[in-house]
Every structure is written in structure tokens, then in C-alpha cells.
């Protein structure tokens, strides 16, 4: 048994909210630089150059990459031998988000009730996913999610007979309909299997994986590569103004499912696909 005080959780989440919003991850910067060489549209190249400049400016001046600093999605992988002391865990996560968004000069984009729509003015509550793991540590990942891309995401309960071709068609159709709205070039997170909510959470988790790393399973890796190739034949291009680079990567995660089902969730994310993590 190891004891972790909630003050440490608050402090860690505050810093992760700020880091995720200021600094683009290296794997994404690498793919943006590669995309400069493969994009055939001149306006597309200009846009990617501007996105790279934007990321460098955000880093240098310590400001948000994008004004939509998102709703904070927090993955908490809690070791089963951890004892949390000092207060309520969920309150401490929200306190970390509150401090991060205030002290980082990040936009407060959350409304308290989805119908009444009054801004909570501190970007809480966060969306929290708990997972119990082995060990005596907590791995915290903060993934602020903007809604330009979130709004274009989709989930469908396919039939097993729809098979691989049905899965590919649903992913590609979702990206085609999204068009310029989610700020292409995008990153596509896909969850296949489980139940409806499991597929959606897998799709979100898929976005945490480095975009230069393919799924370990060969048959899934093949789907990732083929779907990416086809998405980049749609012609949408950077900012949707026409071009080759509509997506930088397709990350798929899978889980066992029911004999009668084939749930597929497609979570679209912008080029920045912000996430930062720490283990305490």
C-alpha cells in the first residue's frame, strides 16, 4: 500500500492541463513536417507551414495552441495498491482542471447543464475515465478535447456481416461528411468492438497513442494503413481547401464483442490532438 495525497493529484493535473494546451507532442510535429513533402496543393503546404509556425509560437510564448482549449478529458489509471488521502478524488481532479485553466490563461468552454447552457466559468467538470491497474502508482493522462472535431465524430452499431469493408466505409464516410469542419489535417481515433460505450472510449483512447505507432495486431494495422490511404484520396486537404493530406494518422483500438455485434466509433481530432501524461 502506497499513500498519495490529493494535493499531488491537484498539482499534477493543473500542470498537465497547461502542458497539453501549450506544447504539441513530438510525434505530431514530425508527421506535420513529413506532410510538407507529400502535400501536392500549394495552399495546403502553406497551411501546414502555418500550423507548424503556430505550434512553435505557442511553445515559445507559452500560450494555447488553439483558442478552443477543450473540455478536459482525464484518464486515471489507478494502481490497486494506492491509498488516496486528504479528500475526495473526483473533487481533486476538478480542482486541478480549475487551476490549470485559470493559471494557464486557457479558455473556459464548459456549460453546466447541456440544456440550460450556463458557462461554469472554470472549465469544470472534467470527463473522467477511471481504470484500476496493478501496482501502487497512478498514471494520469489529460487530453483537452476541442469540439470542432468532437462534433464531427460518430458511432455506429454495424452488423458482423458488414465485416472489414463495412468498417472501412463507415470510417471514410464519417471523414468525408466532416469535410473542412474538424480542422484538417486530422487524426482519426477508432474503437472497434465491446459495447456502444466501450467502442467510444476505445476511440478516445486510440487518440492517446503516438501517431507514428501502428497497432500491434497485423490485421488491425492493415486496416489503419488502408483507411489512411483512402482518406487521403478524398481530396479534402489542409483546412478543407483541397489537397492530399486530410489525415495524419488512423489509430484503431479493438476489444472483444458480442456474437451479434460490431460497434465502431470514430473520434475525430484536429492536428494538435493534445495530450500530456504523468505517473505519480
Amino acid at each position: 500500500m502506497r499513500t498519495i495525497h490529493i494535493d499531488q493529484i491537484v498539482k499534477t493535473i493543473e500542470q498537465l492541463c497547461i502542458d497539453a494546451n501549450y506544447y504539441i507532442n513530438d510525434d505530431i510535429m514530425e508527421e506535420l513536417n513529413k506532410a510538407l513533402k507529400t502535400e501536392q496543393s500549394q495552399i495546403g503546404v502553406d497551411i501546414i507551414q502555418n500550423l507548424i509556425k503556430n505550434a512553435l509560437m505557442a511553445k515559445e510564448r507559452k500560450i494555447a495552441i488553439c483558442q478552443d482549449t477543450g473540455m478536459a478529458v482525464v484518464f486515471m489509471d489507478v494502481g490497486q495498491d494506492v491509498h488516496i488521502v486528504g479528500g475526495n478524488l473526483i473533487d481533486s481532479i476538478n480542482e486541478g482542471v480549475r487551476k490549470g485553466y485559470e493559471n494557464g490563461y486557457l479558455r473556459k468552454s464548459v456549460v453546466g447543464d447541456p440544456i440550460e447552457r450556463v458557462n461554469t466559468k472554470d472549465n469544470t467538470p472534467a470527463v473522467i475515465h477511471f481504470n484500476i491497474i496493478e501496482g501502487d502508482r497512478i498514471k494520469i493522462s489529460v487530453a483537452p478535447k476541442g469540439f470542432g472535431s468532437e462534433n464531427m465524430s460518430s458511432i455506429k452499431m454495424l452488423k458482423p456481416s458488414d465485416g472489414i469493408e463495412g468498417i472501412k466505409k463507415f470510417i471514410i464516410d464519417t471523414i468525408d461528411i466532416a469535410g473542412p469542419n474538424p480542422c484538417p489535417p486530422i487524426i482519426v481515433g477508432v474503437g472497434i468492438g465491446g459495447t456502444m460505450e466501450k467502442a467510444a472510449i476505445l476511440a478516445k483512447k486510440a487518440l492517446l497513442r503516438p501517431i507514428n505507432k501502428r497497432n500491434d495486431l497485423n490485421h488491425i494495422k492493415e486496416i489503419e494503413n488502408d483507411v489512411l490511404k483512402k482518406i487521403n484520396m478524398l481530396g479534402i486537404g489542409p483546412s478543407g481547401l483541397g489537397g492530399r493530406i486530410t489525415a495524419l494518422a488512423v489509430n484503431i483500438e479493438v476489444f472483444s464483442t458480442h456474437i451479434a455485434g460490431l460497434p465502431v466509433a470514430v473520434n475525430i481530432s484536429c492536428h494538435a490532438t493534445r495530450h500530456a501524461d504523468a505517473t505519480i
Partner: peptide, 10 residues
């Protein structure tokens, strides 16, 4: 008019 989505710092 379109501005570049995702280039808010710039």
C-alpha cells in the same frame, strides 16, 4: 472568408 482552424496563436 476562411481563417486557418487550429492556428489561433498565430
Amino acid at each position: 472568408f476562411g481563417a486557418i482552424g487550429g492556428a489561433g496563436a498565430l
